[in-house]
Design a protein around this nucleic acid. Sequence first.
DNA 1: GTAATTTCTCAAGTATACTTTAGATCAAGG
DNA 2: CCTTGATCTAAAGTATACTTGAGAAATTAC
Lengths: 155, 155
Amino acid sequence: MPGKALRRGNLSIGDISDRTGLAPSAIRYYEEEGLIAPIRSTGGRRLFQRSDIRRLSFILIAQQLGFALSEIREELRALPEARTPTRRDWEKLSRHFRKRLETRIATLEALRDKLDGCIGCGCLSLSTCALYNAEDRAARHGQGPRYLLGDRPDN
Amino acid sequence: MPGKALRRGNLSIGDISDRTGLAPSAIRYYEEEGLIAPIRSTGGRRLFQRSDIRRLSFILIAQQLGFALSEIREELRALPEARTPTRRDWEKLSRHFRKRLETRIATLEALRDKLDGCIGCGCLSLSTCALYNAEDRAARHGQGPRYLLGDRPDN
DNA sequence: GTAATTTCTCAAGTATACTTTAGATCAAGG
DNA sequence: CCTTGATCTAAAGTATACTTGAGAAATTAC
């Protein structure tokens, strides 16, 4: 049974896994990626704080909302490293994050509205179409996969 | 110079690349994935129709809107294979696609609204939080990367 | 007809986000 | 103390969406 012997106040990776539904491997991966930074026991095991649950939950939510881990990492930078984040810290992060979300949603809505006109319009090459600009795209050749969340129009 | 000698009416992959801004490698990849099906010249080269430009443009737009190639392939099934799609064909596809988009946007908005309450709420484990359901998530373990567009809540 | 250009195929490589496996170690219960 | 279960690390594998490179064949230009 996890979480018993690990000095009170600290949680094992198993505890965190149970409470967030995240696989331990995913949690380790997030540490590797710098999204969380649990301390270690003398034996080398990860020791989490209760506040890490909230941190991981935020990561999950942000992912469901379509943000890449790199973006989420940036958002999380708003939280203090030295101390446990307060409610006010989280609210500040939340406000900033919400703005990003609003932007993303607005972009989708704009694209949606333009789509109707574009499907029906006569621009086969779409070169003059508001939805699709070949020049912009051509300039992006050879830069690796473009279809990554970090490369969406609303970023 | 491409597109000159290939029997009139047909376009080379180079022409298509120029008009869509897509790299030839990407176009070939879409064929491999069953999103487009150009015919071949006697020499084995791909011959595209002008209508393929529209098809590829739709693919690009749908991607920008956050849809995976597998989903886009499904949407494109609405188009006839035997003949060149008519404007009516495209409008039908567009109507269906727009519904999917509306759903996606609505989900994002719902998540956004719930986020505010959740950041401030007291549910550290978020187990009772509307935004985050650990049970649902735990049941999904071991099914490969969850962070793929096809696995978004609005699918 | 020949050189230059384009395209072809196939294999391998890249980025993100993880999972799986293997072998070893740590920690807890009896 | 010793067995059992949890965790650790490191390496390799998976899925999506492409790009890059190599060597060959098809087109085109002149």
